[in-house]
Design a protein around this nucleic acid. Structure first.
Length: 236
DNA sequence: GCCAACGTTGGC
DNA sequence: GCCAACGTTGGC
């Protein structure tokens, strides 16, 4: 029978900042090692990438977020996440996506893929800037949290249903490119955003990405992008 | 595996 | 706040 080692507690013992950092990094390591034991599903690649995939090119996607306050009726929590919030963090787990097609799109993402950041549910929705994939898809932590609105009792840790990437800030646009402007552009009529309005994570073709950059380059600098963000963030 | 009922998204 | 579009659920 193993003998339990008794460690006497020091007087006035309290966790220092370094202790907390150590504990946090241990937890993160554990989570990562758990995640590595799980096989990541490999869904079909979207048709938008037929050309680019073979050449190992950077790929492009569009993700939506709500910049204005809205209280979720179930959790009573504010769902808002304006683009400027990405400045506050190293990266953000893009969790809470509960649509298979959107999930599959995230599973298909690679590190450093470009993300067009779209503000939805505003008086004038549109693309406000660019983000990048910080980390490839991993199980969405909220599906196992019974207190979360995104809890899924039918998911399990051996075969998680919901996966998501981590997102990091890249740069803001000179001005918001509105949905209306995107719709008016003839070369963007086939954009997934335009055709599949409700999907929150959509693929973007390379040609579409460059067309949008072209639209941006013609714009004057405007601070009306639904959130406070300095002009210095225009250049990467 | 069909499809009615229901829930969610998000522009307007 | 309305509601169209569309995804999901579950009975049969």
């Amino acid at each position: 029978m193993p003998v339990k080692k008794v460690v006497k507690k020091k007087k006035n013992e309290s966790a220092t900042k370094a202790d907390i950092t150590k504990i946090e990094s241990k937890i993160n390591e554990d989570i990562e090692s758990d995640n590595n034991k799980i096989t990541k599903p490999t869904p079909k690649k979207p048709a938008e990438f037929e050309k680019d995939l073979n050449n190992n090119n950077t790929r492009y996607w569009l993700i939506k977020s709500e910049p204005l306050s809205r209280i979720d009726p179930v959790t009573k929590k504010d769902v808002k996440f304006p683009f400027s919030d990405l400045l506050e963090v190293e990266y953000e787990e893009w969790n809470g996506v509960r649509n298979y097609e959107a999930r599959n799109n995230m599973l298909n993402m690679e590190k450093e893929d470009i993300l067009l950041f779209y503000h939805s549910n505003t008086p004038s929705p549109g693309i406000v800037g660019l983000a990048k994939v910080a980390n490839e898809a991993h199980p969405d932590s909220l599906q196992f949290n019974s207190k979360s609105n995104y809890y899924d009792s039918r998911s399990n840790k051996e075969a998680p249903k919901w996966w998501c990437v981590d997102v990091k800030f890249y740069r803001r646009f000179r001005s918001k490119i509105t949905l209306q402007e995107l719709r008016e552009n003839e070369s963007l009529v086939n954009m997934s955003l335009v055709k599949r309005g409700r999907l929150s994570v959509t693929p973007v073709r390379k040609e579409e990405y460059y067309e949008i950059l072209k639209m941006e380059s013609k714009k004057n600098i405007s601070n009306n992008i639904d959130c406070e963000m300095d002009e210095k963030y225009i250049d990467p």
